[in-house]
């Protein structure tokens, strides 16, 4: 083929001439394209952040609000992080259950996902923290009493010693967020696993690997890599949804801001500062996800 149609070399004067001829006009269009593709929204967000930072520094009311609300920052971050780690584990297990051929596992996983996805998150948080956790604790106590009656006091005392008052709202909030996000992450893991071609599993099994070995060494490493950006986006979403735990009186930044606003009647200061704090966290996390996404695409 190549000897029939000689391709012009890069040094070919004819080629560079045509290229120059073509490139003259699009240069203007390219500028227009660049301007339209420039992330103006990002500039706006930076301006908002810088503007708010300036106001916080210069205005005493805002400064007071900011200092007050910062007290809840560690709760927001810790709650989100711990809940996310648990949600990842729960999501991976559930995702594996969703693709499992085992009827019981598959149905349990699907039931969990469908239940969670069908209930508003706010309701779920109340339900898990105020109904779910007490029911589980009561059941544990009942099992403990059964052990005591059966003559195994050591396990019995251990299980009956748990009581509802001991489970703080912070812990309940983390449980609620984990259980809720576990269902969302399960669907991400499931999609990731299903995106890997059947041939990979077949090749692994044909080499004598068990299903578990094939999953662990062949399928999951590829699947997780594919869904890393999606997992990152859900972490951003979780940071935002962690504000719901303020309704359980957990002192995260939302709750502290509400307290501040209620006490000082400075609603504007409280909620502008609060919003910008969330924005700073979510936008910087989103940027990290974008960088990750780009790097993964380059690696391919």
């Amino acid at each position: 083929m190549a000897d029939k149609v000689p391709l012009p070399q890069t040094g070919d004067p004819a080629l560079s001439l045509t290229l120059e001829g073509i490139s003259l006009k699009p240069e203007k269009d390219q500028l227009g394209k660049r301007l339209s593709e420039f992330p103006w929204w990002f500039v706006a967000i930076i301006l908002i952040a810088v503007g708010t930072a300036y106001i916080i520094v210069s205005n005493t009311n805002y400064r007071e609000a900011f200092i007050f609300i910062t007290a809840g920052l560690s709760i927001t971050i810790i709650t989100s992080l711990i809940a996310y780690v648990f949600a990842l584990m729960l999501g991976l297990l559930t995702g594996l259950g969703r693709i499992s051929r085992n009827v019981v596992l598959n149905n349990l996983a699907t039931l969990y996902v469908e239940l969670i996805r069908g209930i508003p998150m706010l309701v779920l948080i109340f339900f898990i923290a105020l109904v779910g956790v007490p029911v589980v604790v009561d059941s544990i106590n009942a099992i403990g009493r059964w052990f005591e009656q059966a003559g195994i006091p050591l396990v019995g005392t251990l299980l009956t010693s748990v009581n509802n008052q001991a489970v703080s709202m912070n812990v309940r909030a983390i449980v609620a967020l984990s259980v809720t996000y576990g269902a969302f992450l399960a669907e991400i893991f499931r999609a990731g696993i299903q995106s890997i071609g059947r041939g990979q599993m077949e090749a692994a099994r044909s080499l004598g690997m068990s299903y578990g070995q094939a999953m662990r060494c062949i399928i999951l490493p590829q699947a997780i890599r594919n869904v890393l950006p999606a997992l990152g986006n859900d972490f951003v979403a979780m940071v935002k949804d962690s504000s719901l735990v303020s309704l359980l009186a957990v002192r995260d930044i939302s709750q502290v801001a509400r307290l501040y606003a209620g006490r000082s009647f400075r609603f504007r200061e409280a909620y502008i500062t609060l919003s910008v704090m969330y924005l700073t966290m979510t936008v910087s996390l989103s940027l990290l996800v974008r960088v990750l996404e780009r790097r993964l695409r380059h690696d391919r």
Binding site: G197, G199, Q200, E202, A203, A204, R205, S206, L207, G208, M209, S210, I218, Q222
Partner: peptide, 17 residues
């Protein structure tokens, strides 16, 4: 798993990892 260890298989689409 044990039997497959004794049987090598080569696929149309290679299926390398």
């Amino acid at each position: 798993n044990a039997v497959r260890t004794e049987i090598g298989m080569v696929f149309q689409l290679f299926n390398l990892f």
